[in-house]
Structure formats: C-alpha cells, structure tokens
Amino acid sequence: MKDVLRDLAAMDGVMAVLFFSEDGDLLFKEMLLPPVEDPEKKEWWPLLIHSLAGIREMELVFDRGRVYIRKTGRGYLLIFLSRGAPVALLRLHCDTVLPALDKTRQVGRGLGRWLRWNRGKGRIH
C-alpha cells in the first residue's frame, strides 16, 4: 500500500497524501510540503471521514490549492495539490493504481485466513 501511495505523492503538484481508514484513523501520511498545522493533531478527521459516506470521489478547489478525495476499498485517500496541479492525470493514475490497493487487501485477508487456518492446524507457531 505504501508504495502505491508514495507513487501518487511523487506526482507533479502534490503537496501531501493522507490515507484514512473508514473510521477516520490516519493510516498513511506523506508530506511533500510542511503543513501549517500537523494533521495528526487535528481531532476532526473521524467526523470529516464519516461525513464522506456515500461519496465516491470529491474534488475541492480552493483559492490556492486543491484537495482530491477518493474512496477506496480500504478507506479514503486525500491528496493535497497545488492549484495548477495536473489533477486529470492524478485521477487517471488513481484509476490505475488504486484497484491494486484493494487487491492487496484481498490478498491480505486471504493470507490472514491461511495463517489462522495453519495456526489452527498447529503448522505455524
């Protein structure tokens, strides 16, 4: 997952990439520019993430920047961008790489089940 998100962070105009679980826990953070305030110290993330329920994709245009939000199978991806960032390219990149993120999760689940099953059989300690 981290590789996928770091690839996104390396794109032109990206200032930061945050990834939250559906419960609003910060799972990944990559800051390309120092934020004015540390996002981890903000208590409103869970509320904000919950308010995104039902939204698949969102793009916010501010005076001096943009935020692109994308729902994935594992949570919500938030990408902070400069105002002139190539957002269409970023969306395209997300379309390409994010399904891999979901697949990682499925593999993880399967692996977890396999590990549990083998533990149950006493094959793994």
């Binding site: 934020p35 305030e37 969102m58 916010l60 245009v61 501010f62 005076d63 001096r64 935020v67």
Partner: peptide, 13 residues
Amino acid sequence: MGSLFQCGRLLLT
C-alpha cells in the same frame, strides 16, 4: 482541510 496548507477559501466542490 484547506487551512492545513493555507489553501485559502473553498471556491468549488
């Protein structure tokens, strides 16, 4: 969220 990077006011969503 915009305030984290001093993005200014929200114009459109």
